Computed example of a mutant assay.
Amino acid sequence: MELAHTELDLRERRAIEDMLHAKVPVNEIAATIGRHRSTVYREIKRNGFEDDELPELNGYYGVTAQRTADARRARRRKLIRLDDLRAHVIAQLRIGWTPEQIAGRLGFDDQPVRVSHETIYAYVYSAEGQSEQLARHLPRRNSR
């Protein structure tokens, strides 16, 4: 049976925080929230809070970890973050260009940031792209 990749949510991160403060071993934390222990170790290492000026505050905080994870996820979404790039891509889609053509031309169209055609397809089929009905502008579209 293949398990779907699911990211930790705020509830799980708060549970990790509470159990770490109660000095519960990571193996027990993992069993309690139903995750593998390596997932919990990785979460603590990646999203732990560190401050050089106030080292007594260093540690794992669920809300801070959630913000860090959300920021990391947002960095991956160029077409949502960058308004000019998104507007350019949408304009090209609407006049009939394919995502491959758009991605190939970005460097010539004075766009400082480039994205791949896979990124454009991902945006078209995302909730944001579906709300703008971008898939209907593709020459061959998937039925999702």
Rank of each mutant, 00 (worst) to 15 (best):
Glu53Ile: 13
Ala103Tyr: 00
Leu79Pro: 03
Glu28Thr: 12
Leu93Met: 08
Gly48Cys: 02
Ala74Trp: 01
Leu3Ser: 07
Val89Pro: 02
Ile33Val: 11
Glu118Asp: 06
Glu12Leu: 13
Arg11Phe: 10
Gln66Thr: 11
Lys78His: 13
Ala87Glu: 09
Pro25Lys: 12
Arg67Ala: 15
Pro139Arg: 09
Leu8Ser: 06
Gln101Leu: 03
Glu17Gly: 14
Thr6Val: 09
Asn142Leu: 08
Arg114Met: 02
Glu100Met: 13
Arg81Tyr: 04
Val63Phe: 14
Arg14Lys: 14
Pro25Leu: 06
Leu82Cys: 03
His21Asp: 06
Arg75Trp: 00
Arg77Leu: 07
Ala127Thr: 10
Ala31Lys: 13
Asp18Met: 10
Glu12Asp: 14
Arg136Thr: 09
Thr119Pro: 01
Ala30Pro: 04
Pro99Leu: 03
Arg72Val: 11
Pro112Glu: 05
Asn47Gly: 10
Met1Leu: 13
Arg11Ser: 08
Glu128Leu: 02
Arg144Tyr: 09
His36Gly: 08
Arg37Ala: 04
Asn27Met: 00
Glu43Phe: 11
Asp70Ser: 00
Glu50Met: 09
Phe108Asn: 07
Ser116Ile: 01
Asp51Gln: 11
Lys45Arg: 15
Phe108Leu: 11
Leu82Ile: 09
His117Arg: 11
Ser143Trp: 11
Val26Gln: 09
Thr39Asn: 04
Phe49Arg: 07
Ala69Ser: 07
Arg136Gln: 14
Tyr123Met: 00
Ala91Thr: 11
Ala74Leu: 09
Ile44Trp: 10
Glu12Met: 14
Tyr60Thr: 00
Ile16Phe: 08
Pro55Asp: 12
Arg86Ile: 05
Thr64Asp: 08
Ala30Arg: 05
Ala15Glu: 12
Lys45Trp: 10
Leu93Thr: 02
Leu93Val: 06
Leu106Ser: 02
Ala74Thr: 01
Gly59Trp: 04
Gly129Phe: 03
Asp9Thr: 15
Glu118Gly: 04
Leu10Tyr: 00
Glu132Val: 03
Arg11His: 06
Thr64Ile: 14
Leu54Cys: 03
Ala69Leu: 11
Ala31Leu: 10
Phe108Pro: 03
Asn47Ala: 15
Leu82Asn: 02
Ile90Met: 02
Leu106Gln: 08
Val124Phe: 01
Ile102Phe: 02
Tyr123Asp: 00
Ser131Cys: 06
Pro55Ala: 09
Arg140Leu: 10
Arg67Gly: 14
Arg11Ile: 10
Gln101Pro: 02
Ala4Leu: 13
Thr119Asp: 02
Leu20Arg: 14
Asn27Arg: 05
Val40Tyr: 04
Leu10Glu: 06
Ser116His: 03
Gln92His: 09
Gly62His: 13
Leu57Arg: 15
Val24Leu: 00
Asp110Arg: 13
His21Tyr: 04
His137Ser: 05
Arg144Gly: 05
Ile95Val: 15
Thr119Asn: 02
Leu8Phe: 12
Glu53Phe: 13
Val63Gln: 15
Glu56Cys: 02
Gly48Met: 08
Ser116Tyr: 01
Leu134Ala: 06
Arg140Gly: 05
Arg67Trp: 15
Ile95Glu: 12
Ala22Cys: 10
Lys23Trp: 00
Arg140Asp: 10
Thr32Lys: 14
His88Arg: 08
Ile95Ala: 04
Arg13Ile: 06
Arg94Glu: 07
Asp84Leu: 04
Glu17Thr: 15
Asp110Tyr: 07
Ser143Glu: 11
Thr39Arg: 07
Glu43Lys: 13
Leu85Val: 08
Ala71Arg: 13
Asp52Tyr: 06
Leu57Glu: 15
Tyr123Arg: 01
Val40Ile: 13
